[in-house]
Simulated scan of single mutants.
Amino acid sequence: MRPARALIDLQALRHNYQLARDVSGARALAVVKADGYGHGAVRCAQALAEQADGFAVACIEEALQLRDAGIGAPILLLEGFFEADELPLIEQHGLWCVVHSLWQLEAIERSTVTTPLQVWLKLDSGMHRVGLHPADYQEAYRRLLASGKVAKIVLMSHFARADELDCPRSAEQLAVFEQARQGLAAEVSLRNSPAVLGWPELFPQQRPSDWVRPGIMLYGATPFEQAQATAARLQPVMTLESKIIAVRDLPAGEPVGYGARFVSERPTRVGVVAMGYADGYPRHAPTGTPVAVDGQLTRLIGRVSMDMLTVDLSDLPGAGLGSRVEFWGKQVLASDVAARAETIPYQLFCNLRRVRMHYLGG
C-alpha cells in the first residue's frame, strides 16, 4: 500500500480549541468548514463534541454532513443560505444562519418558517466581501426582530488584516462595528483566529456570552508570518508523511527531476519519496523547502512531480529505503513549508487529497 498518509492528532485539536476559549474568555464556534480544513470535518467535530460550544461551516451541505454523523451541537452557516428554499432545511435541522445581504433578510421575511431562527447579522466593517452596509445595519436588525421569524440575533463582522500584527486596520474595523451596533443589545462575534491570538488589547472587556470563531488555530498552524507568543502554544494537528521508495547516488553536475531545476554541486545522495502534487504537496515548493527524514532535518531538491519528489540524503548516511519522511507536522511546521512555497498553511491543508487519514487520540 502506498505509504503517503496524514496523521491527525485529535488531542492536539482539543488542546487548541481550549486555548481559543482560555485566551478569549468567550464561547467558541469551532470552524470545520472545507472538511475541517482538510483534516476531516466529521472526525474533528466528533472529537470536539463534548467540549465545543458549537461549530461553523460554509454551507448547508457541510452542516447536514455533521448532522448525519450525529453532531447535535449548534452549527452556524457562515455564508448563510444561497437560495430561499434552504430555509425549511435550516429550520428542520436547527441550524444557525448568517445574514449578510438584504435579499436574505427579505427571504426570511417572506418565509413560512414556524420555528424562529437564530440569525448572525453580519456587518461589512471594511473587508468589503460580504456584510451589510453600516447604514443598513440597525434597520436590518429591527426588521428581523419584527418579522416574527427570528428568535435571536448575534452581531458579527470579520477582520481583513488581523494576521498583520502591525496593521491598524483591525482597530479601524472595530470602530466601524461599534458605531454601527450602538444601542443594540445583543451578543457579539468578531474574532477569528488571528484576532483571538494577536489582538487581545482590542477586546479588554470581552463578555463570556460573546463568541469567537477559531479556524486555522484549531489545526495548530499560526496565521502570522512572524513569531507570536500565544501562537507558539498551538500544537500541530496534522502530520503529513511518507517513505523513501528509491535511492540514487549521483556525482556532481547531475540534474534531478523535471526541468533540471536542481543540479548537484557535489556528490549527492538522493531519496525518492512517494509524495507529489496529486497528494496536495505544493508543486511550486522550491529546492531547500524543509523536510525531516527519520527525525533529521534536510531539504527538498528538484521539482515536485505528480506522485513523487526527491530529498537530499547526502548528510544522512543512516537514511534509506523505507525511511520515514515528514513534510509538515510537529517537527517541520506547515507555516515554514508554506512560506517557502509562497502560500499559506490554510491552502496546504485544504489541498490535501488521496493520502490515507489516520486519527490518533480519538
Rank of each mutant, 00 (worst) to 15 (best):
D85L: 07
D279L: 08
G220A: 08
A63Q: 09
V337D: 06
Y258Q: 15
H15E: 05
R248F: 13
H15L: 04
C167D: 15
T114Q: 15
K33M: 02
V23C: 09
V212D: 01
A56C: 11
A171M: 02
G253W: 10
E83V: 13
V256N: 08
A195L: 11
E62S: 06
F262M: 04
A162V: 05
T310F: 11
R14M: 04
E254N: 12
L87C: 02
Q226W: 03
E187M: 10
L77K: 07
R142Q: 15
G302S: 08
A6T: 12
F224P: 06
M357I: 02
I71V: 12
T310G: 02
L218H: 05
H133N: 14
Y219H: 12
W211S: 01
Y359N: 09
S209H: 11
R299A: 14
V57F: 03
R5Q: 13
Q11M: 09
D312I: 02
G280M: 03
P134D: 07
A146Q: 14
G70P: 06
H39I: 06
E50N: 13
P208W: 00
F262T: 09
V332F: 07
S323H: 07
H93A: 05
T343V: 03
L66H: 07
G70C: 03
Q46C: 03
S125R: 06
L76Y: 05
L165P: 05
A41R: 06
L218M: 01
I153R: 04
D22N: 14
L144Q: 05
K330H: 13
G148T: 07
L234N: 05
S157D: 13
E201I: 00
